[in-house]
Structures are given as structure tokens and as C-alpha cells.
């Protein structure tokens, strides 16, 4: 009875194999767990601890340092509305108010249907495009209530709102937890060389500048 799906368990093994010490993989595996469930569950932390040789307390301690790991359930879409100074001056607070009104949920809460979690956030580093909000960390610039309503309509209808001029990306907006749609795979001969730092006796393969005269098997 394991937490990770079969496919994700394979990915986890591949991620762990990249590092000289398994516990270095804690954060990538937390991302993987969050991608699978939308948030980091207790079972996920226990399994990550087993896989990396850490204790569950260490996994929670490491993960809870980072705000983007969620240790409580969140909606399929996490809406962050900025109310920091630039956005505030250009209507960020009014936007937040509209978001709360239209979704019938206070900042920090999740809608009853589990679709949206609304959060008031500090500066998201898009002051030139204020006011702005993000959905699952995808930006919507110079937003007003109509922009937000259209995004919600799209999401509820199963359409991607990303084509609305935000990022020039017409792909689907994945559920919370998925950071990217492309999985990184590193071929064996491009790996850094799985030895602990103190045992490394040659420069890592990815640092070599001159064409290697030795075969890949020597690396």
C-alpha cells in the first residue's frame, strides 16, 4: 500500500538515483507528491521519508519551510490575489473583494465544490502589470473583475483560460501541484555521477568542456 502511483514511483526512483545521497531528493519528491494529490499528504511524507532514508519529521520540517508546499487540502485551482502596494493602488483590494464575493469564500478558504482556494498574497513581482492575480501560479495581468469572471467561466467550463492574453500559452491549466507538463529525464551518461562529494575524484560530466576521448562507460 504505497502512496505514489506506479508511474510516479518509477519517477521517484529515477529522481533519487540522480543524487549521491537519497535525502537530497526530498524536495523534488515533495513536488511529485503535490502533483499527484494537489497537496502533500501525511502518507506522502511517510513514504518520502522511507524512500530517502530521512524521518517523516525531517521531511515535514524541510517541506514546511516552503510556502508553496501545502500540507492541507486546497482546491483544484489556487487563486492568489496580490494586494501589495502597486496592485493595491490600481485596484487589487477591490479585485480581491470581487473574488471573495463571486466565489462566496473568504481569503484562505476553499469553495464548497473544491474548485477554488482563494488567498491574499504579498507582491508577486509583476508590479508593471498591476493589478494581477495568479491561478496555480499562472499570471493574469492588468486584471479587473471581468477578467477574473471570464477565467472562472473558462475553468468551470473545462476550457483553458491561459489563452486570454496572459502568457501566450494556449495549453491546459493543470490542477494545483503540477509545475510543468514536461518531465525532466537525464540520460545516464549526462548524470553528474552518483558519488558523494567527498568521494568525487574527477570533474562532473556536465562540466566537461573538451570532447571526451574516453567512452561513456568510463564516466
Amino acid at each position: 500500500m504505497s502512496f505514489f502511483t506506479e508511474a510516479n514511483a518509477r519517477t521517484a526512483a529515477e529522481v533519487i538515483a540522480r543524487y549521491p545521497r537519497p535525502r537530497s531528493a526530498v524536495i523534488p519528491l515533495l513536488h511529485l507528491a503535490q502533483e499527484q494529490e494537489g497537496w502533500v499528504t501525511r502518507d506522502a511524507m511517510v513514504e518520502i521519508a522511507e524512500l530517502t532514508g530521512a524521518t517523516p519529521a525531517e521531511v515535514l520540517g524541510t517541506g514546511s519551510f516552503y510556502e508553496m508546499f501545502r500540507f492541507h487540502p486546497v482546491g483544484r485551482y489556487v487563486v492568489n490575489v496580490c494586494t501589495n502596494i502597486s496592485c493595491q493602488l490600481l485596484g487589487g483590494e477591490e479585485l480581491l473583494h470581487h473574488v471573495e464575493e463571486s466565489l462566496e469564500v473568504h481569503a484562505g478558504g476553499t469553495t464548497a465544490d473544491g474548485m477554488f482556494t482563494v488567498e491574499e498574497v504579498e507582491c508577486v513581482a509583476a508590479c508593471t502589470e498591476a493589478p494581477c492575480f495568479t491561478v496555480n501560479y499562472r499570471y493574469f495581468h492588468r486584471a479587473d473583475p471581468d477578467t477574473f469572471d471570464a477565467v472562472v467561466d473558462d475553468l468551470r467550463a473545462g476550457r483553458s483560460p491561459l489563452a486570454r492574453g496572459a502568457q501566450g500559452d494556449d495549453g491546459n491549466l493543470p490542477a494545483h501541484g503540477t509545475l510543468g507538463r514536461l518531465r525532466q529525464h537525464i540520460p545516464d551518461d549526462r548524470r553528474a555521477g552518483v558519488v558523494p562529494p567527498e568521494q568525487a575524484d574527477q570533474e562532473p560530466v556536465w562540466l566537461r568542456t573538451a570532447p571526451s576521448t574516453t567512452s561513456a562507460a568510463d564516466a
Binding site: A57, E58, L60, G61
Partner: peptide, 10 residues
């Protein structure tokens, strides 16, 4: 060697 207590949060 029993890392069962840890800092949490930030």
C-alpha cells in the same frame, strides 16, 4: 540519531 523532532514552518 533519532531525528524525530525538527523545526517546522518558517
Amino acid at each position: 540519531g533519532d531525528a524525530l523532532i525538527h523545526f517546522q514552518g518558517r
